[in-house]
Amino acid sequence: MSDRTGWWNLYRLRDGVVTVVLPIDADCAPAPWEAGYQSYGFGPDGAVVLTVLDGFSTELVAVDPAGERRRLGPNLTSVKPYIAVDGSRLAVIGSTPSSAPGLWSLDLTAQADVSAVPLHADPESESAPPWTPVLPTIDTVLGGGGRVSYLLHRPAGASSSVPLLVRVHPGPTDDVPLRLDWTTQFFVSHGFAVAEVLHRGSTGRGRAFRQVLHGHWGEYDVEDCAVVAEHLRSTGVALTGAIFISGASAGGYTALQAAGHPGPFAGATAISAIIDPARWELSVPEFQRAHAAVLRGPAGAVTPDRIRCPVLVIHGSADTITFAEEAVQFVQDLAALGGDHDSLLLEDGDHYLSAPADREQALRAELDFYRRIMSRPRR
């Protein structure tokens, strides 16, 4: 896999000659900041199956030995970059805007485009919600670095301005999967619009777009999130004074940096957040350190004295990726300066808040935090 053309494409070495399997202006793999991906596989007839990303959706494409391509599983909009082939069957972790990630299977021997079928015994799987989610839209707005794309979820029947939550993906070189996300649905079900921003540095839009964040982490990502928030406020989607930003891990760093700048956000939530990129760089696995080093820039560590709006800090005490003690110290320093801040330390909670009880507690704390801010008298 190489991005020598500016896009992650798969290459074949045969008889000493290197050729591209599927020449396409799209990323056929995520950015390699994590290990263990398997974004391509081999069918029984010699076909190569690939994931093809655009930043929001992921397609499955099969390329036969003659170079002919066909799409697989057109009913899926998001596919994890883990492809498993067993004989004529392909298995993936896939999802749609109305179904959460689950195991899906496809028949590679089918002649026509074939839909994926869920791999579970009960047709009323828990991955299906008890209501019909409102499908999101993909929109763009012009920002300082060009057009910024985002996924927008609005509450059912919303005809006037509503509170807005801007969610920042982790990574920060991640994407915004077009899939059912329970955290997003939680806030939508409580009357919030949710915008998920594909800020500069995200995966799926090629190398130039991904690498533009190098040396500008905490700057360009913050700018793009603010541009989307201001646009949704000016167009009447978002309620002035009720615009919030939330992120986890690297997204938590972006949210905290946004809280330190003048802008549209009335509050920020940082979950399992990176607070000091220089310190975090020393803690990541060695193969990730070059990537962490090239990302960080003048924005530097988040310091309490720069925070300009209420902040909620949520962290697990057993987080092995970011530092609970750093988050606790940050909270204590914030409290010493005063302000309407809040925190939640989850005992034995991990980086991903994997335990259902931790996830529920965090969601309720975040919702209560926003409601408290919105209940304050407006100036």
Rank of each mutant, 00 (worst) to 15 (best):
T5E: 03
L10P: 00
T19H: 04
F42V: 02
F42Y: 12
G46P: 02
V49L: 06
E59S: 10
D64G: 04
P65R: 07
P65C: 13
G67H: 04
L72H: 03
P74K: 08
V85E: 03
S95G: 15
P97S: 07
W104S: 02
D107Y: 00
A110K: 11
D122R: 09
E124G: 10
L135R: 11
G146Y: 02
S149G: 14
L151Y: 02
L152M: 04
A158V: 06
L164N: 05
T184Y: 07
V194R: 00
E196S: 15
L198T: 00
H214D: 14
W217L: 07
Y220V: 08
C225Y: 06
H231K: 12
R233I: 13
I245T: 10
S249D: 07
H261M: 15
P264D: 02
P277H: 02
W280T: 08
P285H: 11
A292K: 08
I307D: 03
G316H: 08
S317C: 05
I321H: 10
E325F: 12
E326F: 11
Q332D: 13
D333V: 08
G338V: 10
D342F: 01
L344H: 12
L344S: 01
D348H: 09
G349N: 07
H351R: 06
H351W: 03
L363E: 05
R364E: 15
L367R: 11
R376N: 14
